[in-house]
Every structure is written in C-alpha cells, then in structure tokens.
C-alpha cells in the first residue's frame, strides 16, 4: 500500500521541518506546498502554525495559497490545523491589527493579556481535557485525556461550549479551546509534532483512517 500523502502548507514563518519529520514518523509521505496547486493527489492538508496571524493571512493571499486552503475546506478534504494554523480557521484575530481569517469557524481569536492568566505568552506544557468523541477508537481517550502537550501562544479561542470544541485547556483560570473538529477538519492549539511521544501517538490516533 502506498503511504498517504500530506501537503504541508509553507507560510515561510512556520516550523516546516518539525511538522514534516513528525508526519513522516507517523507514516505519511509529505510535500511542502508554497503556491496554489491541484489538491486532488493529497490525502490530507496540513496548515502548520508559527508566526503572526496578519502576516500569515497576507502570505496566504499573496501566494494564492488561500485558494488551495479554501478549496480543500470546501471539498471536505482531511485537513489538520496546528497552532496558528488552527487560529487561521476562525473568523478574525486582533494580533497586531484586526485581520479577517478563513472563517471556517465563526468565533474570533482573543488575546490573553485581557484576561486573568498566569502568562500572557504561554510557552510550555499543558494538559488537554479531551471530548471522548474526538477519537476514532474509544480506548484512545484514556491514552490522551489530561496528558501534557506543548503549547506556544499569546492568543486563543474562548470556550463557548460549541459542538466543535473537542478539547480544552487552562491558562490560569481562563479556559480555552485546544482541540476543534468539524467534519474532516481537525485542529490543535498545541504542537503535536513537538509534544514528545504523546504528541506523535496523538497524530497517529487522529489519522488512523489512513492506515487501516
């Protein structure tokens, strides 16, 4: 069986090699995409994050990668957003200047510095409370629920108990969304590619459908 092929969207500001290595470890072939390309040959599209929201949106537009992203979302391709790549799926962010996002989810991104949090930039390990239904197999819930994952962010998605919230975490007393899922789109606020073996196993568990 040929290995599934993942497209990794290159925004020039993200940790491309780290995500590539992790996906290859899990069993994907990978291709870095820097401009609009035919999406048909890809099994999964990955939008990794690192960088500022407004710069990333600008880059998506300048390179017409935004067409690639929107087409994959419209065609219900398997799609994975990571960190900023999750935030870009939302409608708007105030990072540096108010910028419109991809609006796949309707919520807005918010800044930690308006809230009672431990650190306005959260860098480090944090627990994730998962919704059981996130996983393809029930037993995986126990393997990942309340485990530590690696987060780096100053902005976040507020919890509204929407049906697409599949995982939440805390910064101080502020609870925020750390996992979202809607049809074939999943996204993490944390970096599964940098969360040790737990992270690699989560990538495996979230993409089991490609390997059965």
């Amino acid at each position: 069986m040929t290995k599934p092929l993942a497209a990794i969207i290159n925004l020039n500001t993200n940790n491309i090699l780290s995500i590539r290595r992790a996906l290859e470890f899990v069993g994907f072939r990978t291709e870095i995409i820097s401009e609009n390309t035919n999406i048909d040959k890809f099994d999964m599209i990955v939008l990794p994050g690192v960088g500022a929201f407004n710069c990333a949106m600008q880059r998506l537009e300048e390179t017409s990668l935004i067409k690639f992203v929107n087409e994959s979302l419209n065609k219900e391709k398997y799609f994975m957003g990571i960190c900023l790549g999750m935030q870009l799926l939302f409608s708007e962010s105030p990072e540096f200047k108010k910028t419109k996002g991809l609006s796949f989810f309707s919520e807005k991104i918010e800044n930690f510095n308006k809230f009672n949090v431990n650190k306005k930039t959260f860098i480090g390990w944090n627990q994730v409370k998962f919704n059981k239904n996130f996983f393809i197999e029930d037993e995986d819930f126990l393997n990942f629920n309340e485990k530590y994952f690696y987060f780096v962010h100053s902005y976040f998605v507020d919890c509204k108990n929407q049906k697409y919230e599949y995982g939440t975490s805390f910064n101080g007393t502020k609870e925020f969304v750390s996992v979202v899922k809607r049809s074939n789109v999943i996204a993490f606020q944390f970096h599964p590619e940098k969360s040790g073996l737990t992270g690699l196993n989560l990538l495996k568990a979230s993409t089991k459908n490609f390997f059965s």
């Binding site: 500001t13 690192v50 960088g51 500022a52 929201f53 710069c55 900023l84 990072e95 540096f96 930039t121 959260f122 860098i123 780096v152 962010h153 100053s154």
Partner: peptide, 8 residues
C-alpha cells in the same frame, strides 16, 4: 516579533 509572532 512582528513577522514571526512573540512566541517564536
């Protein structure tokens, strides 16, 4: 900081 975001 402006290009890569604070946390990078």
């Amino acid at each position: 900081v402006n290009i890569f975001g604070s946390s990078t």
